[in-house]
């Protein structure tokens, strides 16, 4: 009998703790598949965030180093500068990437740090119980924006991926979504492209992945995929925002 589907080698045989309908489980699998397919396990180091994915090292069977909340890109910089032969990626949520870690993220990107960030945007703080995120969209209710996010009080959703795409140090910047099977497959290709960018030494690569959080959005899993496609994708358009194909000089 031919085996056509199995667990990626880079995933431990540990059941995910993530909520039903959460995007992290899908995304972990995609990242693991890409690492397997690109044969990177022996040289890759992952840096999980503070947030729901803090326990990513319980699932990935690769070297992983925890970072303090928001400091992923700084820790990744320390790794990459001391071990340029290694492939370094951060796996960060919206609070980690675009609130507390904005400075670390922007400056790593601007230095053209040859690392990859996988940025999971579900527009809400998941682990702490559904508070407002920098990426919470206008009108979206959270436990700390109970009246819906108002631009004149809570400010606007932060589009950090668009900002990073304007930086000369960024080599590959794209946004994808987990809303449909086709988009999931496109996300995998995009992650692969980001790692290829790092392998080619072209600079900072970033993949923002719009991901559902039915628990904190307080809707069903089915509805969350709909919300993802109809609301979040409207605020955060999908696509490749930047792609550099040749190395820049000093």
């Amino acid at each position: 009998m031919k085996k056509i589907f199995s667990r990626p080698e880079c995933l431990k045989p540990t059941p995910f703790h993530y909520c039903p309908g959460c995007g992290h489980s899908i995304l972990h699998r995609l990242v693991a598949e890409v690492i397997d397919e690109m044969n990177l396990r022996g040289r890759i180091i992952g840096i999980p965030p503070a947030g729901c994915a803090v326990l990513a090292y319980d699932y990935f069977d690769i070297d992983m180093c925890e970072a303090a909340h928001g400091r992923g890109c700084a820790v990744a910089t320390g790794f990459k500068r001391s071990r340029p032969e290694c492939i370094i990626f951060t796996y960060q949520g919206d609070g980690d990437m675009a609130a507390i870690g904005t400075a670390e993220t922007l400056h790593a990107a601007n230095r053209g740090e040859n690392i990859t960030s996988i940025f999971v945007n579900n527009a809400v703080y998941g682990m702490t119980g559904g508070q407002m995120a920098p990426t919470t969209i206008l009108g979206q209710k959270t436990t700390t924006s109970p009246f819906g996010r108002r631009s004149n009080v809570e400010g606007y959703p932060l589009k950090i991926t668009e900002i990073i795409s304007t930086l000369p140090g960024a080599a590959y910047v794209a946004r994808t979504s987990l809303a449909t099977p086709a988009k999931v497959m496109a996300t995998k290709k995009t992650i692969k492209k980001a790692f290829e960018t790092q392998l080619a030494g072209l600079g900072y690569s970033l993949v923002e992945v719009l991901s559902p959080c039915p628990t904190n959005w307080k809707i069903s899993s089915i509805e969350s995929f709909k919300y993802l496609e109809e609301r979040l994708e409207l605020e955060y358009p999908l696509g490749v925002m930047k792609e550099v194909t040749t190395e820049k000089g000093s």
Partner: peptide, 24 residues
């Protein structure tokens, strides 16, 4: 060897952490 001016003290100590975890 590596000299890097970080964007803040917070970033710098976390870069140190990354390098230390990498074994240097």
């Amino acid at each position: 060897r590596v000299f890097l001016q970080g964007e803040s003290e917070i970033a710098s100590i976390n870069m140190v952490l990354g390098a230390a975890a990498a074994g240097v």
